[in-house]
Design a protein around this nucleic acid. Structure first.
Lengths: 355, 355
DNA sequence: AACTAGTGTGGGAGCGCTCCCATTGCCATA
DNA sequence: TATGGCAATGGGAGCGCTCCCACACTAGTT
């Protein structure tokens, strides 16, 4: 079948991949010594190390991961969990960028990435099973809703967790978030600076902290500029294009005199932009627009959309780094060095022609 | 140290997770029997099965994956490899859709997805190491270039592989592709049907089969419509927006009288559209445009872009399904049922206002 | 009554590592 | 010369499964 041909007489192995034992035999040392060399223990003489290294190279030895995991009870793999529903909502590149960041950091640490898209409640339960099967050393959680019990569940299993975003202001689980309040504030400041005074906002779904934070930033921005709050200028969307359309129509109904909108995502901004066009409003002459995400959508809109950029890939990297540290903390037993368990990364306003 | 705590008297386990042995003890049967029940062997009496199931439930037993992998030499995980460079080029949603399809199919088969973004030659080698460590039962490969040796390398390791796309017409490795020739043909047919006669094309990088196939479809479409081929109407891009711009400028230089362009990707079409605007050509009045991918970009362009849709998620599912079958073929030893090793899924023209 | 042919079932023998306890040899110290 | 200490090493004892052989036990044959 797909077995080895008659190839290797060269090396001592007969079939399948060589084992530690075979490497040891070839190098003329014991199993323990080979293990030490493989794992970089300092307690090996230079001479022995070289001999073992040669045997490893000659046999093309690669340690069997399952055996390592079983004997050492660590898998060198982590799981990244993404709720499928959200994967569709978010500006498309979001999760890919996040994955990219996580993946880069894990590669540097020589760990593997297990990607889990969770589609349904049933699959979520299967995922918990799977954690219990001790396949991973830790978990990264993306896009968690306000009432999600999963993070706590995982911690109960004794697994380290880091989330992307938080469920509330006082999040007990370690997380990496972007400065969503700062995002709203910067957007409003820019609009105010451009001479706008009747600034509305289309928010995300308010059961998500990220949406509340951006709204909070918007309010803070207005306050700082000395504008009175006006709830008629606030309309809730749901991060979809259609939601953006609906919210924009509502705003136009309620306050036809608005002259700017801070939309909490680029995708919703695309919807809003369509409604404005239908209503005969010009962008940016009549109404200025600012989005969030700085996605491809923003660049391609007509006019190109000013948008608040989040350092998504960097968030991914940071999450992975935090998780790895925590895992090491547990494995080495060295009491967790109590480093910051929450990171809020800065956002940046990318100015384009929409305001 | 980690020996019996005083904890759970409720169930038989002492600390950490329960083992097969403990389940066996509780159910009053042997290890082998529990294993049979867990793995759904028919050779167990109904009565015993029930008793074991109860013990499993009571203890909250979940089999340890590492032990299973070691003893059974299968991991129930597969790797999906995506070259990072391509991840940036392709219309953004592509890989996410692919991942979605793969993930869905794997979830149904209760297998895990290991995602590997390959950034550099160094990382590619690490990936081979990693395959040798027997972490996965098979490999899914996305976006393979014409001269990529990786697919063959993996097969030499005795691992099943399925690719997304192919390296050449006569691809020996099993693959799933979309009908790129049909895509080009359909686009041209549509343009011809709209009364266009000087139809140009912007191709992808011609070292990729996908680019050659779309070009082939374009030519076939012209031939079928009775148009003579004209190499001045063909310009090579590289799947980037900037590449699309360059190629479009070249075309406009060479054949200012062109009245339609089939662009081999939406992203390049966005670039081309910009150049056309700068040149004072209206879309679709002066020049009709057709892209490929039916991405968000296409929907958001002004005017919205007619584009050929590929069933990306379906490709992902199909790939996963093929791979799983092949893995079973090997594991059950049942000689590979010699089912089709190549699938070409149909594409679909999505007509919008750009032509 | 002695046989065959199944079913169910128990449990030994690994799978290929890591962990850790011995053991060896060597040098510095008493 | 005896003694302790330490670096380097070997290898036993698992880790928690799957595989498979052996052994009951039943029931249907001759």
């Amino acid at each position: 079948m797909s077995y080895e041909g008659s190839s290797a007489v060269v090396n001592g192995r007969q079939n399948g991949r060589p084992t530690l034992e075979q490497v040891a035999a070839r190098a003329g040392v014991g199993r323990g010594t080979v293990s030490r060399v493989i794992n970089g223990s300092p307690r090996v003489s230079e001479q022995t190390r070289t001999a073992v290294a040669r045997a490893v190279a000659e046999l093309g030895y690669v340690p069997n991961q399952a055996a390592r995991a079983l004997a050492g009870s660590r898998t060198d793999a982590i799981a990244l969990v993404i709720p499928e529903a959200e994967a569709r909502l978010f500006a498309e590149p979001y999760f890919l960028d996040l994955i990219r960041g996580v993946s880069a950091e894990l590669a540097d640490a020589d760990k593997q990435l297990l990607l889990t898209l969770v589609r349904s409640e049933q699959e979520r339960q299967r995922f918990e099973q799977y954690l219990a099967a001790q396949r991973v050393d830790g978990v990264l959680l993306a896009s968690v809703h306000g009432d999600d019990p999963l993070p706590d569940r995982i911690r109960e299993l004794g697994l380290p967790v880091v989330m992307n975003g938080r469920r509330s202001e006082a999040e007990p689980v370690p997380y990496v978030d972007s400065d969503n309040i700062g995002a709203g504030r910067a957007a409003v400041a820019h609009l105010v600076g451009g001479g706008r005074s009747r600034i509305a906002t289309v928010t995300g779904p308010l059961d998500m902290y990220v949406a509340r934070a951006r709204l909070g930033g918007y309010r803070a921005g207005l306050a700082e500029a000395g504008h009175a709050p006006d709830e008629a200028l606030v309309s809730a969307g749901d991060f979809t294009e259609e939601g953006g359309r609906r919210a924009m129509r509502l705003l136009l109904d309620r306050r036809p005199d608005l002259d700017a909108v801070f939309v909490a995502s680029d995708v919703m901004a695309a919807g809003a932009r369509g409604v404005l066009r239908e209503a005969g409003r010009r962008v940016p002459e009549d109404v200025a627009l600012v989005g969030v995400d700085d996605s491809a959508v923003a660049r391609l809109m007509d006019p190109p959309l000013t948008s608040v950029r989040q350092p998504i890939e960097e968030m991914g990297r940071t999450m992975a780094r935090m998780l790895i540290r925590e895992i090491h903390g547990i494995q080495e037993g060295g009491e967790a060095s109590e480093e910051p368990r929450r990171h809020v990364l800065p956002t940046e306003l990318i100015v384009r022609e929409s305001c």
